[in-house]
Every structure is written in structure tokens, then in C-alpha cells.
Design a protein around this nucleic acid. Structure first.
Lengths: 152, 152
DNA sequence: TATTGTTATACTCTATAACTATA
DNA sequence: TATAGTTATAGAGTATAACAATA
């Protein structure tokens, strides 16, 4: 399928639903990546903060939530911890296990990122009128709400 | 904003437009990544093939199209070339410059990926009825700026 | 002098396999 | 034996800075 034509000046061809969705997904990811970069974070580190906003998962939980191997999660948390964003807490119920939680600094950054990402994505859909935005919200919700979870 | 709840079992909460769009973008990216992985390629390598499908850019053009630093493009093309997917052609107009093009094997893989990615994204929107899909196509096109003027 | 591209370097991110400690 | 997590290792991907060759 066609790539997002970042270097072309006229992007007014009619797109099929696949190209439109793929280009939209790249536009959203680019937006999120830029916001994260503004806080000197990778998108993955930002996603980590998002996961930890409402949870205190074990390393294994975290790996599953981010679809990473457990060894990748170890490195991710090592780097986040080194930057003072998260900390490992010994589990009281399983001596092998850690619970990962945000530090105060991590919570501060998480709040900033949430606000900025919301603003940036809102700006992305600003070309639509309010009914269009509501329709997009509804359709996107329906697509992600019907995801087969059983497949990994 | 909330993370795609990969580890939760029911995704039927009402989502705001930002969360819905972010989750949709991750769903699309995950789908594309899985298709690419099925051909033993990263998503970036697959994007590279997509760019080269209709173009024969210089290294600098390529870096711009993929929004990479020129040094990153060097490594990307080195790896793709090592796998026999692309080749560097000396420019006839600028002795400093190369044109990057697909090999026969690269074209073969590109065609397969295009077909599989289209099928996978189509499957993603299958929960919607045909008017919903058309509406999603229209809204996404408008957001990414590729809507024909007549429909604006 | 400016541009094209590579190299050297350092870091993030990713997975596999082997390992330790605990269940 | 099985599970939770780390370590060792290898590789992709990313950017910055310095560099060579050419424009």
C-alpha cells in the first residue's frame, strides 16, 4: 500500500480505506512520538508511563501489556528507573516478583504527556467538524472494541 | 491517555476521540508489524519497500520520505541490500549520489506485502458495515489531508 | 563553501538462551 | 518442575559529529 507521501506536495488523490487508515495511523504515531520527544522520551517510555498511570503491574504483567519479551521489559524498566521515572517494589506475596510503580517525577511527567498528547491528537482531527469527530470516535471505537484478543 | 488495554478482556468502555484514535493507530501498526514479521521483515523495512514501489530516490530523498537522518538511511539501505531487496545505482548526474531501487526479489516481496497488508487492514475494519467503512475512509482521508477538493 | 553520503560512536529497543531464586 | 526475573549476547534502528568526495 502507498506510503504517507511526506515528500509530495499534492496529496489529494482519493484514498482507499486501507491507505487512509494506514496513513492516519502513521500520523497519530508521529504525533505521539513528537510529543514524547519533547519530554526527551521515546514513545515506548511514554507508553510505559501510560500503562503505569492506573496500574502497579508485575514485570510479567508489564511485558504482556506492552507485548514485550520479559527480558525486554527488564531493560525498559532499567532505563526508566535510571531516569527516576519508575521504581521496583518487592512483592509481599511472591519473593520472586516486583511491582513496578511511578515515582513522583514519573507521575508529573505522565500528567504533562497526557495533556500534551490529547491536545496534539485533538489538533490532528481539527479539520473535521464536530459531527465528523463524533462519527470518527464511534467508528474507531467500534474497530478497536472488536479486536480478537485470543490471538496473543 | 489510556493505553490500548492489551491485557483487559472487555474493551467496551466509551472512548474519547483521542483514546479511540490512539488505540486504532496502535491496532493498525500492530497489524502491519505482524504482516511484515511474517515475511521476516521489520515494519521499517516494509515501509522502505513501499516507498521504493513507485520511486527510485536518492539516499537523501529516502531519508526525507522516511523522516530519518541520512546516517540512519545508510544503515537501513545497507541491511536491505545485504538481504538482496534493494540496490544502489550510481547517479548519472551527480557523482556523489546514489539512486536506490528494488531488486527483482524486492519487487516480489513488495507485492506480497501489499496484498497481505491490505487484507489484514480490511479484516480490521470488517466489524463495520459498508456505510461505516466508507465513512471511516472519508474521515481518515480528510484528517490526513488527502480528500479530493470536491468533497471538502 | 555547500551538499551527498559514509563512518565512528553511543544509545534505545528487541528477542533468544542460559541462568538464579523462589514457588 | 514451573515461574519470575535478570544477564549475556546479537542485532535492528536512531541520532550526532566528523569526515571524504564532489558540486
Amino acid at each position: 500500500m502507498a506510503q504517507p507521501a511526506a515528500d509530495e506536495d499534492e496529496g489529494h488523490d482519493a484514498l482507499g480505506v486501507v491507505d487512509a487508515l494506514v496513513q492516519l495511523s502513521f500520523a497519530v504515531q508521529t504525533t505521539l512520538t513528537e510529543v514524547a520527544a519533547g519530554a526527551d522520551l521515546s514513545l515506548l517510555q511514554a507508553r510505559l508511563l501510560g500503562v503505569l498511570r492506573d496500574r502497579t503491574p508485575t514485570m510479567a504483567d508489564l511485558a504482556e501489556a506492552l507485548r514485550l519479551d520479559k527480558s525486554s521489559a527488564t531493560g525498559l524498566i532499567d532505563r526508566a528507573q535510571r531516569r527516576g521515572l519508575v521504581q521496583r517494589m518487592k512483592s509481599t506475596t511472591d519473593a520472586r516478583s516486583f511491582l513496578v510503580e511511578l515515582t513522583a517525577e514519573g507521575r508529573r511527567l505522565t500528567a504533562i504527556l497526557e495533556e500534551e498528547m490529547t491536545g496534539a491528537v485533538d489538533a490532528l482531527v481539527a479539520p473535521l467538524d464536530p459531527p465528523g469527530i463524533e462519527m470518527l470516535r464511534l467508528l474507531a471505537s467500534r474497530v478497536v472494541g472488536c479486536q480478537p484478543r485470543s490471538a496473543r
